[in-house]
């Protein structure tokens, strides 16, 4: 009898402690099971990151653009004076034009070559997987690192392109004593980064090289979602290879293509590292972009306000592009 009572008491104590433990954990558990609460909890880290690293710097930059702040001194509010000053300056107008030119040309070349590369990679050939992986390499190497290699390849004295050019130029090719190509004598090759138009061409080339894998792989992924029956149907409908591309492939991958182009447009527009490493905006500001100009104004000259204003000029331009293209995307009805 006594034994039974002791046992009952022990069981009661045990269940009491279990209830206590339960009530301790249950508040958090209940809250987390509430989807609204859980949603906010899961959002918080990303939200904090955006606030600290994007929203705050953006707000600070906008504020600085409205002041005459220089390094080491608090600025005074001067309204839109910085913007007015920039619009009035030749360097800014050159940089703005350079940015638009650089972005449009580089994006167009990347899109065209990327599509071509994607169509090639979409075919079945031996080692196609290895090749697809290899295409991504320029994208994986850190930009500054690969750009330093470009710097050497485009060097005024040591350029490997010029070396090859000279070698080809100097070569005499003869077959059975018949001279097919003569030795044309000495050629120096272009001063890649030293002449304005060559310099713009060079930074576009380096940007295309770096950006191409993103286009090629994105387009390739899109190409692989096109059902093969559509090509069968087009074959039977009587479409040639080019017409199949035009009437089937292109419309099918258009939604992806637009997103890729918009994304690349934004990234190219704000490109900094590549130009900074290769030319620092020179020669004669011929490769100055808004990003490098903003850096030069704020970091080198110390005019933080003016630099921030130059950087802010990118926002409305990019905004218009994004809105236009996303509106188009919605209109053609992506599901």
């Amino acid at each position: 009898m006594a034994e039974t009572t002791a046992k009952t008491a022990a069981t009661t104590r045990e269940s009491a402690s279990r209830t206590a433990e339960k009530s301790r954990t249950s508040w958090i558990t209940t809250q987390l099971e509430n989807e609204r609460v859980l949603g906010y909890v899961l959002l918080t880290p990303a939200f904090l990151l955006i606030i600290v690293f994007i929203a705050y710097p953006f707000a600070l930059g906008t504020w600085m653009a409205l002041t005459d702040k220089v390094v080491g001194q608090p600025g005074n509010f001067i309204g839109l004076a910085n913007f007015a000053k920039l619009l009035d300056s030749d360097i800014f107008r050159t940089a703005a034009w350079n940015t638009v030119f650089f972005t449009v040309v580089a994006t167009a070349i990347k899109a065209a070559l990327g599509m071509w590369l994607a169509v090639l990679l979409n075919r079945k050939f031996s080692l196609s997987r290895v090749t697809r992986a290899a295409v991504l390499l320029p994208f994986i190497v850190p930009t500054v690192l690969s750009t330093l290699v470009w710097l050497w390849m485009l060097d005024g004295t040591f350029s490997v392109f010029n070396w090859i050019l000279r070698w080809l130029w100097d070569m005499e090719i003869s077959v059975f004593g018949l001279v097919i190509k003569e030795d044309f004598g000495y050629i120096r090759g272009p001063n890649w980064l030293g002449e304005p138009s060559w310099a713009m061409g060079s930074i576009i080339m380096a940007n295309v090289w770096r950006g191409l894998p993103f286009f090629a792989i994105s387009f390739l992924a899109a190409l692989q979602t096109v059902p093969s029956e559509l090509y069968d149907a087009a074959d039977i409908d009587g479409a040639s290879g080019w017409r199949k591309f035009w009437h089937v492939t292109l419309p099918m991958i258009k939604p992806v293509a637009i997103v890729v182009v918009v994304f690349s447009f934004v990234v190219t527009f704000a490109d900094f590292q590549l130009v900074y490493v290769l030319t620092r905006g020179g020669p004669h500001n011929s490769t100055h972009l808004l990003a490098t100009l903003a850096y030069q104004l704020s970091m080198h000259a110390g005019n933080l306000g003016e630099g921030a204003a130059a950087a802010l000029f990118m926002v409305p331009l990019l905004f218009v592009v994004i809105v236009l293209q996303l509106t188009y995307l919605r209109r053609i009805g992506v599901d």
Partner: peptide
Amino acid sequence: PRDRDIAMVFQNYALYPH
């Protein structure tokens, strides 16, 4: 195929979605 003068109906219809 285009010169064989045949028409084909596919299992998944293969209609051009656009």
